[in-house]
Simulated assay, not measured.
Amino acid sequence: MVENRPFRDFMAYLTLALGIVIVVFPVYLAIMASTFDAATIINGNMPLLPGDQAAVNYPRALFYGGVHAREPVGMMMFNSMIMALGIAIGKILISVLSAYAVVYFKFPFRKTAFWVIFITLMLPVEVRIYPTYKIVADLGMLDTYTGLVLPLIASATGTLLFRQFFMTIPDELLEASKIDGAGPFRFFKDTLLPLSMTTIAALFVIQFIYGWNQYLWPLLITTQSSMQTIVIGIKKMITTTDALTEWQIAMTTAVLAMVPPVLVVVFMQRLFVKGLVETEK
């Protein structure tokens, strides 16, 4: 019997609605600000309805940039896309292969190797930033896509996620593959990868957003404006000097920066949720 508690249901929905308003209102405000000119935003009387400058602000931001952004937003979004895709794909490849080796191959210190990988979760980029930067600089990878992506593609979280999933796969599948004459690579390609698609999708969404939102690492290794990512571009548009900030371009850039992560989450939502909550594979 389901107990009817209308007051508790009302409070739950009210709390949820308030949370949505708190999260969505700044986004809505940025979208509205991107449709006005600078004077309307600066005077503090910006309406909460769309303006008539969207057709001017968005093309200008995408193809020309603002006064303080020496590169157009389209170029910055391209750099961020390369970085986010490279990090997401690289983390998935390394994680799935390392988890496969830890689970299905018998070698000395196998568990020790896994725990060494797991311990690296306590060493974020900020902790190892100097030695990582030194290596990248010595290898001549400053202001390159390789330098943006390569140091960030190792993922202990992804290895743990795939390891836990592989351990739920029945041993009978491995035995059946051996009977069919399948080697380790064929078993991995024909059996494990198809079963891992929801896990791969969930990890891709998480790591894509992680790569897209990176600020500290690209700030350190990019000295050319043509290599800056969109997160850095937004920061440079908001000046702290006497120069006038072009808030309409900054807000337009912020809105454009939200589009790719939102599209990734929307189009991969079903696989993303399934990969996180499904327990029986």
Rank of each mutant, 00 (worst) to 15 (best):
V2I: 10
V2M: 09
A12I: 14
A12V: 14
L14T: 11
T15Q: 03
T15N: 02
L18C: 09
V21N: 06
P26M: 08
Y28L: 10
A30V: 09
A30T: 10
T35M: 02
A38G: 08
A38M: 07
T40C: 03
T40K: 08
P50Q: 06
P50F: 05
N57Y: 00
Y58Q: 09
P59T: 03
L62D: 10
Y64V: 15
V67Y: 14
V67H: 08
A69M: 09
A69W: 12
V73P: 02
M75K: 12
M75N: 11
M76T: 01
N79C: 06
I82A: 03
M83H: 04
L85N: 06
I92W: 07
I92S: 03
V96H: 00
V96F: 04
A99P: 07
Y100C: 04
V102I: 15
F107T: 05
K111P: 07
W115E: 13
I117Q: 12
I117D: 13
I129H: 06
I129S: 04
P131S: 05
I135L: 06
V136T: 12
L139C: 05
L139Y: 01
Y145E: 07
Y145V: 06
T157N: 06
T159I: 15
L160D: 15
R163A: 00
F165G: 07
I169V: 11
L174Q: 13
K178F: 03
D180H: 06
D180K: 06
A182I: 15
A182M: 15
P184Q: 15
F187L: 11
L195M: 14
T198V: 11
T198M: 13
V205Y: 00
F208D: 09
L216V: 00
P218Q: 02
L219F: 11
L220E: 01
T223S: 14
Q228P: 04
I232L: 06
I234Q: 02
K236L: 09
K236Y: 13
T239D: 10
L244V: 12
E246Y: 05
M251F: 15
T253D: 10
V255E: 10
A257T: 14
P260F: 13
V265C: 07
Q269F: 07
L271K: 13
F272Q: 05
G275W: 12
V277Y: 09
V277Q: 03
V277A: 05
E280G: 15
E280L: 15
